[in-house]
Design a protein around this nucleic acid. Structure first.
Lengths: 373, 373
DNA sequence: TTGTAAGCGTTATCAT
DNA sequence: ATGATAACGCTTACAA
């Protein structure tokens, strides 16, 4: 015991008071301190109170490394994300954190960088293995190798917002959500509808964009509507890619669509900004609908299909933690709700024959939010 | 050694292969394995290669708890943030992650919830103590008690984006940045300038808003310009608060400003959306400038003063890690650069006598990005 | 109710 | 260059 202090000093002196210090001060064994501070039974109220008081006074906090080593649990769950500053991901992280925080777990963030072959990306079990008790994967495009790695690590796992083969999954029904959006446009009377999807040109496992495309095509076909090859545009879910898509669409000669379905709100905003700048009025000349209900969508009046990544991640985290708590079977796939939110970027198309670029539709605004380029 | 397997099974079986398994398979001691896998010297090339091969084959990954216990370092740094899904914070987290990832550290995220007395908020050393090697605090308003706690934890600490007494700090010169914005407006010829600041009505330690207000007042005074009491509005840095501020400003009778300086881009966007909706043209009727250079600012054409939270956090993280690497004195305060980005939401004021609500200024857009509310 | 002591998987010291 | 071995601080049977 005296030697202890000496040893510690010799080894460079890890700071902090240990369980033994508390035990000594309280005149009990470390085992009792351990039980007391963790609120376990088998400690008399008197000793518990005494120990807690001393622990508090000494500023004792258990070493997570030590208890992790002893129990085999780190009380930390990992969150794997391709981005952190994009809407879906930052919201999801926030949601996961809520649940984690409430249940005294820590959140370890692993940002892998976007999906795409050109990005540097070292994903190995080394990163996460033995550091976390469970893993929440956010809408990642994963290679087969990565998926294998993941599954070898034998910890609870759930993916939010994108399917990964063989893994439990939480997210909206992308097909239904996209179909809802397209039907809204068709219901308004549109027949000339463009698509701005979010495919990335890689071979990665990421089916969200494809599912939304499929829904678009099916609904259009189901309504007997023509899908024009040249109105099929793509982006990478960002505002900028939406802006670029607008120009590709409008700079090309030929007829223009009266509505466009965008696979994300951010791309929809890009369309709107550039449309405005080009003198194309929304929704008079062009109806725009997205998917997400981004933080800015309400302010912009964007019609969209809402989803709540925070709630999805919160639910996923809850499942993970329940599983760790011994409730086997807690982790399972689940579909999250979506909801059509009609605002003011969608309206019936102008009647045919009306000149497209001059007068505003009744009630439409004329001031500019995207001041001269 | 044979007993080992048995023990493990008895105790519930922590999975995974240990250093001893590798040592056994390689016919060397655990000490040698430890040196080999960590790339330390004093291992012959031959044995090293052999060990590495076996480790790889067995899928060995060192237990972070065990090495954490042995070394006293967790190889993870904590990031404390009041929000994660707001621009500044998500960017900062991304920046911190870059540096951390590059140097093989983990990032543990602690989301404390916004500053403000009504929010539930349990911040104690318990949260972070003995779990992290260093702490990066993101622009938090901290109570005195919290600051004390922080300082008692004797680990490297740096705060990014907001001053905390006695702590090393990295961030832009808020006074200069705000002054730059206001001078730009004045340089354009504006004299009727409103302020949308971001004060929160709490007693917390958070001086960024106050510094920006002071700069506004000083520059106005220095230019001999009048600061109107009723043009002093506040928000909480969000788009919505900017929208609300616009209405408070415009719904009141009396003269209107020709320009407004907003303490953040998001609030500036709120102003622009509502101005547009109300038929107030930007920049013809109202010039708007913000601070940040938010992701959407370029798309919106927003004039602003750019700052780079990711780089600030990256720098802060680098300092922290250098300090941990034994380079004493690495952690120190530093001012990050800012830069005026002139886009298209600022222009000279209309000349007096011109009717305010009818015709657009030459070249200004007339289409609406905020379709009929 | 409390204590004893054997792990947990590494690292680091000191021999060899 | 390599190996024994004692920490590291905590948990948890099991004994008392």
């Amino acid at each position: 015991m005296v030697a202890k202090t000496t040893d510690r000093a010799q080894r460079g002196g890890h700071s902090g008071v240990s369980i033994e210090d508390v035990a000594l001060a309280a005149g009990v064994s470390t085992a009792t301190v351990s039980r007391a501070v963790r609120g376990l039974p088998r400690v008399s109220p008197a000793t518990r109170e005494k120990i807690l008081g001393i622990a508090e006074a000494l500023g004792y906090v258990a070493s997570s490394s030590a208890s992790g080593l002893a129990t085999g649990r780190t009380k930390t769950i990992g969150v794997l994300a391709p981005f952190v500053s994009r809407w879906f991901f930052s919201k999801a992280i926030e949601g996961a954190d809520r649940e984690l925080h409430a249940r005294q777990y820590n959140l370890s963030l692993f940002n892998l960088g976007g999906h795409g072959s050109h990005r540097e990306r070292l994903f190995s079990k080394t990163m996460v293995y033995k550091q976390i008790d469970a893993l929440l994967v956010l809408c990642m495009a994963l290679t087969h190798e990565e998926i294998e790695h993941l599954q070898k690590i034998d910890i609870p796992l759930v993916v939010v917002g994108g399917h990964v083969e063989e893994c439990p999954y939480i997210g909206i029904d992308d097909y239904a959500a996209a179909a809802t959006a397209v039907r809204h446009l068709i219901g308004l009377g549109h027949t000339e509808i463009a698509l701005l999807h979010g495919d990335d040109e890689t071979d990665l496992n990421f089916d969200v964009p494809r599912v939304r495309i499929k829904a678009f095509q099916d609904v259009m076909a189901g309504a007997g509507l023509n899908v024009r090859e040249e109105w099929d545009e793509w982006g990478d879910f960002t505002v900028l890619s939406g802006q670029n898509a607008f120009h590709r669409l409008w700079d090309r000669p030929g007829p223009k669509p009266t509505a466009i379905f965008c696979a994300s709100d951010e791309m929809a905003m890009g369309i709107i900004f550039e449309a405005t700048r080009a003198g194309v009025q929304v929704p008079a000349d062009l109806s725009v609908i997205g998917i997400d209900d981004h933080d800015f969508s309400e302010a912009m009046g964007l019609t969209t299909v809402r989803q709540r990544p925070d709630e999805q991640a919160e639910m996923g985290t809850k499942m993970l933690l329940d599983e760790l708590d011994g409730i086997a079977g807690s982790v399972r796939s689940m579909v999250a709700p979506h909801e059509l939110i009609v605002r003011s970027t969608t309206a019936p198309p102008r009647r045919a024959g009306v000149v497209t670029r001059t007068d505003a539709a009744p009630g439409a605004m004329t001031a500019g939010a995207a001041p001269g380029g």
